[in-house]
Every structure is written in C-alpha cells, then in structure tokens.
Design a protein around this nucleic acid. Structure first.
Lengths: 245, 245
DNA sequence: CGTCCTATTGAACAGATTCAATTACCGTGG
DNA sequence: CCACGGTAATTGAATCTGTTCAATAGGACG
C-alpha cells in the first residue's frame, strides 16, 4: 500500500516531501525529523478516491485520520432538509482528523482523482503522545483552522456576493502561492454549486458575480475551472468592499 | 492581585473551582491536579473590566492569555468600512488565547462587569510545555472551538433569520445547562446589535424574529435581557427549519 | 418626571433567490 | 473531424427575504 520509503539526510524543513509522496506539505508531519517521519509513515496506508466518492460521512465513527497527498476534497455539513454548507476544501498536504469526539463532524468527498494516506486514530494518537513536537504542531494546525473559520464567519455574515467570491479567489491564490504555484492563475476543481455552498450563495449568484468581476476586468476565465487574476489589487479591494469600479 | 488560594484535597473533577474563583469551568485548567493548578494560579493575575471596555483589539500584539472568571465578553472582527462580525461570546470558565501568531485575530470587549485572570503568554507556554495533559487539553479546546465555528458557518451560510435566532437561543440554553443553571431561562448579556452581528443579521431583523417566536409561543420575554423557553422541542424544530407553526 | 438610549414596529427598497430558458462544454460515437 | 447528447454553467425575469430608513415605544437612571 505504501509508496517506497524516502530517505532523508537531515531534519526536514517545514515544507518537505512527506508520507512517501512528492507533495510539499504544511501539515502535521512537517515538524518531524527523518526517523520519526519514517516511523509515522509505517503506520499509514495509501489509497485512491475517485471524483464524487465520499471519504466518510458526517456522523460516521471517526476511527481513522488522513492526510491528502494528491487531488482535492470538499468538506460539508447538511441540514435535515438538504441545505448544504461546504466548510472547506482540502488540498495536497492537508491533514484531516482534528476532532474531539469519535464522530466525523462533516462529510468529506473527493473533487477529483485523489490519493490519501490513512492512519488508525488510536495509533496516530499514540504516536503523537510520544512526540511532543507533533502534538504542538497539531495544536497549531487546529488554531490555524480556527482563525480561518473566523475569517469565513466574517465572509458569510457580513460580505456581499461579489466580496465573497473575490475573497474566495484570493484565498485560493494565496494557497497556490504557499505551495509555490503561480498565484496569477487559480484552479477551481470544484463545481459552481460547491463554491456557492461554500460562500453561502446559490450557483446562479456565483455565475453572476463571476460575470461581474470579468466585466470589471479583475479576472479572466481561462477555462471553466481556471481563472486568471488580471488585477490583484482591484480584486483585493473588491474583497473588502472598497469598491472603485 | 490574586484571590486567596483554595486548597484541594484530591485531583479535581473536570468541572471544578479554578484560578482562585468560585466559577465552575470547562476550560484548560480542568485537567490539572491540585498542585499543578496552584502552580498555574501563581502565574496569573486577576483584574476587572467594565461594560464596553475592550480587553484587546484585533491586531494588538498577543502577549497575554486570559481566562474569564466572571461576567461575559464579546469577540468580533471588523471590515474596513465598519461592518462587524461577532465571532463568539465568552462566559466564565472560558479560555482566551488560542492563537498561532503573535497578534490577536479579533477584538474582545466586556459585556458586563467582568473579572479575568491574565497570564504572560511565554510563561503560560512554558507551563503547558511542562504539562502534557494541559497541552492535550488546549488541543481539545481548539478542536472544540473549531467544531463550533463550523456549526456557525452552517448557520451563517444556510439558515434563515428565524432559524438563526432559534439556534442561538438553544446554544445559550445548552451552555447554561453545562454550567448547571436552569436551561429554561436564557440570559442575554449582549445587546440586540451584538446578537445581530453574531447571526449575520440587522438588529431590526433580530427584533422581528424575536417577536415572531414570541407569537408562536416558543419563547417569552421575562425581561429585555432574559428569555424563557416555553417550547423547547418547537424551538429545536424551528432551529433546523422543521417548521410546524 | 424627563432624558437618553435601546428596542420595537412600519413601509419602501435592494440584493440574492427561485424558476425558467438558453448556452457552453465535454465525452462519445459516427 | 464533426455531430450528438448530457451535464454544468450562464443569463433572464419575477419573487422574496432581509435591509434600510424612519417613526414610535419602552426602560434605566438621574
């Protein structure tokens, strides 16, 4: 199941190849030195997920934790009547397993062909208990997610449709930058409905604000699932309501 | 500065008197035994805050962490043009200091006469590093906050005004229950505007929704800042959109 | 008892939604 | 290579929920 082991010469930088894959990651394993990392990797097993395939559902017993090594996921919660709120998207290097109780708080579903690494939660917990730096990193990760969630509250509670979408694009661009890709282009592996459910809008409104930002020459559609940012500063202004166009 | 020390006979239950006050708490100190707790308490210093007085502002250097021992706070973020999103309310026993970087991510402001205990962040960090159970508890706390934040995203992104307010009341009732108070009555130390900024609405809409739930006989206003829940199940149905009235 | 501030209520308005129709894209097969 | 079919995305028009602006009522406090 596991890809062949990678040998490291020295303790790893915060961003490094991880979990037997070529992905550069900001996730929990970043703090481990090479031997510890090898130990951890022996605990995990790799597998694939096809587009639309769920990794787990909200309410499922959470007996595993995961790292995403390739592809992308959407995370969402449902109301009884089917209304959906996408709480986040996962990209390579992201860790999936922050939880208090033993049930998943959301559904996770693949957006495209994806590769993940699964760990038994008890074993993962044992491992972290033996590695204080790992525990601290998990905490930092949770704190980081919490800060992002609070940002999203501002977006959902107080921003207009255009501001939400502009903010969303900038978030994706920044993430791409962190990974080292060109920040000028933003890939959208998710559907307009997924974006809508993330931004608290409808897919029609997402289409309309997309058209609006296009008309303002802030962005350009290279493909349906790929946007070019033409005017970064203008987009930043549009994201916070400093409308000048 | 500190209140007189409290002597404990045995390791403390998850809910216990903490930080030299009589408050029962679910916060980080709950996992410590009595000696450790005494150590921690020696690091902190107690102080008061008047209604409307800020504890810190968004962007301030975060050199301290706090526990709230009495009163209540609102936490909020601002957009450049003044729009406000209240990200949460704090009650006695709550911990205030989950953060990655050295800047506060939000403003914290007292709603009523409040008492807090302040700890130097470096010293607090040293303490947690020496107490693995404390570190773990901090992580669990962050994970818990994250789960709550995701719930709030569902509220802000997908619920109607009435659903939001009903959900809010039930959240307050559940918190009161955990503390041991009568869940039938809900105190509202915050203004209608604060509630509105928490729920992503206007104060007028909050008033209207309040009137609507009153007319449906789900709640009653004992005072402007105190609500009686008349029909818990009805309110729960109203909170998720299972409208029957 | 009067003042100030908050909360409530009312009416017009606006932004986003809903429902419906059209267009664009993508993979398949001729 | 292009036509075809199905799905997703876009666009349009009517509607609706919540907002805005304005007026009234209610409490707290001197």
């Amino acid at each position: 199941m596991l890809a062949p082991a990678v040998r490291h010469q020295a303790p790893l930088a915060p961003n490094h190849a991880c979990f037997g894959c070529e992905v550069r990651t900001r996730a929990v394993c970043g703090v481990l030195d090479c031997d510890k990392l090898a130990d951890l990797r022996r605990l995990g097993s790799s597998f694939r997920l096809s587009p639309g395939q769920p990794l787990f559902h909200e309410g499922d017993p959470a007996s595993l934790v995961f790292t995403l090594t390739k592809g992308s996921l959407k995370l969402y919660k449902l109301l009884p009547d089917g209304r959906r709120q996408v709480t986040g998207f996962m990209y390579p290097g992201d860790f999936l397993g922050i939880s208090i109780d033993d049930e998943h708080a959301f559904t996770a579903e693949a957006l495209e062909q994806s590769v993940l690494c699964a760990f038994s939660r008890p074993r993962f917990d044992d491992f972290t208990e033996d590695n204080a730096e790992m525990e601290r990193e998990l905490y930092r990760l949770a704190a980081h997610e919490l800060a992002a969630a609070q940002q999203q509250m501002v977006l959902l509670g107080r921003k207009t449709a255009a501001e939400r979408f502009a903010t969303f694009l900038l978030m994706l661009a920044e993430r791409a930058e962190r990974i080292g890709a060109a920040a000028r282009f933003v890939d959208l592996p998710m559907s307009r409905s997924d974006i809508a459910d993330y931004l608290g809008l409808t897919k029609e409104t997402v289409s309309r604000v997309l058209a609006q930002l296009k008309k303002q020459r802030l962005i350009r559609l290279e493909a349906l699932d790929r946007i070019e940012i033409l005017d970064r500063e203008g987009l930043e202004a549009a994201a916070d309501g400093d409308l000048d166009g």
